[in-house]
Design a protein around this nucleic acid. Structure first.
Lengths: 205, 205
DNA sequence: CAGAATTTGAACTCATGGGTTCAACATAGT
DNA sequence: ACTATGTTGAACCCATGAGTTCAAATTCTG
């Protein structure tokens, strides 16, 4: 009930990390609390001491991971704040970074878990609202609006432009990786980013 | 072992339909064979008579549904064979039809099930290869290639063009429906199709 | 219509895993 | 150094549901 010490915070953190790892590998239903405990390096009763039950554990683990995933993607947008002369090159770098993140095993697994459980866990709807694609699109739309005001783009509807930009990146990625089950070479990710930026700039540049 | 009569084929068909309905509603793990039997209007041992076990049932149900989903989407592309004078209008109609299909409850559920179980059921990889987004993109690419040869489009890379077209449609849809958990008004689907076609034709028209 | 095949309802076996208990041990705080 | 708190390993209880059994009923076939 009271504040927990750093050591105990670390244990809870280890449990959440271990939980996400096991949920990512096996899915919610097939993941055993005993395995999660083992992955976290604690005893099973300790898991229950920190998190009430398996479903609570899942919610917390997913929230922590979704937050981290969004933070990483928002960080990938930062070069757009100071794009310099070659906007196409910066957009391509940003696109490439977003593709790498999206293709990463951990975020593929997060996506699968979200799809798998979103109808069973109402919390995941809220998590998706707070940390999902809309948030990334909003941040990107802000950037595109600024670039439009600076005369660098012609995005009268920055929300639509942002949405189309991320779609041009992630749609092909998802199809080519068969829903995230296959890796792509980094060169292919780069080409994909280039193609997306080319189409985007023809339409909105 | 021998051929089954029409009545028996119908029973097996009812089982597969009932199975998909229950899997779609509850997910693989939470779906009970007893409930599937009830949905199909048969006794539980009858389910086991026709399909060996729950996993086999799941694979067959998913394959049947994925095939139907692809057939419906391929059918939605048919207007592109004879587009008439107003290609933008036909592309918009086709896009609108694809969005409606994609947003339909049944195919949302199929997608969720594919994401949820694709790492547990290798068959789903094959099903995705045979009936998944790539198939739709290939068929669309064929159409776009023909339209390019006819001087209607400038799609030197019809595969990429097709991929971008479906991405411009489905990416925004998936974000706006929060992974298929919310409905959109048909007017919004129409607007989405129009926006996608507008960008597509600027880039590839 | 008789025989074969399938389906049925109810009960059953069995495995699995969520969650709990508890005395002993380890760690943290005063 | 003592007390409080947290953790531990092992065993446990309990619910759930996959899959099976079986005699009787129903449906199908020739």
């Amino acid at each position: 009930m009271g504040s927990t010490t750093r050591g105990r915070i670390d244990k809870r953190q280890a449990i959440l990390e271990g939980a996400f790892t096991v949920f990512a590998r096996q899915g919610y239903a097939q993941a055993c609390v005993q395995e999660i405990a083992a992955e976290a390096g604690v005893a099973k009763p300790t898991v229950y001491n920190h998190l009430t039950d398996k479903a609570t554990l899942f919610r917390h683990a997913m929230k922590a991971s979704a937050r981290t995933a969004l933070e990483e993607r928002l960080a990938a947008l930062e070069p757009l704040a100071q794009p310099g002369d070659d906007l196409a090159a910066v957009l391509t770098d940003v696109g490439h970074a977003l593709l790498r993140l999206h293709a990463g095993g951990r975020w593929c697994a997060l996506r699968r878990l979200l799809y798998a459980e979103i109808t069973h866990f109402p919390d995941l709807l809220e998590i998706t609202d707070q940390y999902g694609p809309d948030r990334l699109n909003q941040a990107l739309a802000d950037r595109l609006a600024r670039l439009t005001l600076a005369g660098r783009l012609r995005a009268a509807d920055p929300d639509l432009a942002a949405e189309q930009f991320t779609s041009l990146l992630l749609g092909p990625l998802e199809a080519r990786t068969r829903l995230g089950t296959r890796d792509l070479e980094d060169a292919e990710l780069r080409e994909l980013a280039e193609s997306a930026v080319r189409t985007f700039l023809i339409a909105w540049g």
